[in-house]
């Protein structure tokens, strides 16, 4: 288990973005640094949900083009892309089978926020196991 250190003012940006997206899912990237013990979030990049194969109420996608933009923007900010966040509207902040199938990398922070009735309520942090078989929970600290 790693710590995820998340500054309060950046968390407020994440929460506002996910509340704006409600009742759809919202998403974006986390920039910062990865150490042996922690994901240290320095800033967030909010992005549009580009899922177009059905309802965005239970699906999100960040396109390859947006992912490239994030990589370049992280470099400009002197950071790395260290994770991703998305919301589960009116649903627990636990990875679904769909999240698992589309999870990109281990050693990458996956934050999921429950947005209930339009309000960001609970965020939990997860990380894909090295063998890609499941997610394990990390220790999220909003400071």
């Amino acid at each position: 288990m790693k710590r995820v250190e998340f500054p309060q003012e950046q968390y407020a940006l994440l929460a506002a973005h996910l509340q704006d997206a409600y009742p759809n899912e919202g998403a974006g990237f986390l920039f910062g640094r990865i150490t042996d013990e922690a994901f240290i979030v320095e800033s967030v990049m909010t992005l549009p949900n580009t899922w177009d194969e059905g309802s965005q109420r239970n699906r999100f996608r960040l396109s390859a083009e947006d992912s490239l933009k994030a990589e370049l923007e992280a470099g400009r900010r002197g950071s790395d892309v260290i994770g991703v966040f998305h919301s589960h509207p009116d649903h627990p902040a636990v990875p679904s089978q769909w999240d698992l199938e589309w999870a990109a990398w281990p050693n990458f922070a996956y934050l999921i926020t429950t947005v209930a009735q339009g309000k960001a309520e609970r965020t939990r942090a997860w990380q894909l196991r090295a063998d890609r078989s499941a997610f394990e929970e990390d220790d999220l600290r909003i400071t």
Partner: peptide, 10 residues
């Protein structure tokens, strides 16, 4: 190497 990220609640 650029990932496209997807997922969702169910």
């Amino acid at each position: 190497i650029i990932p496209s990220i997807a997922g969702g609640r169910a």
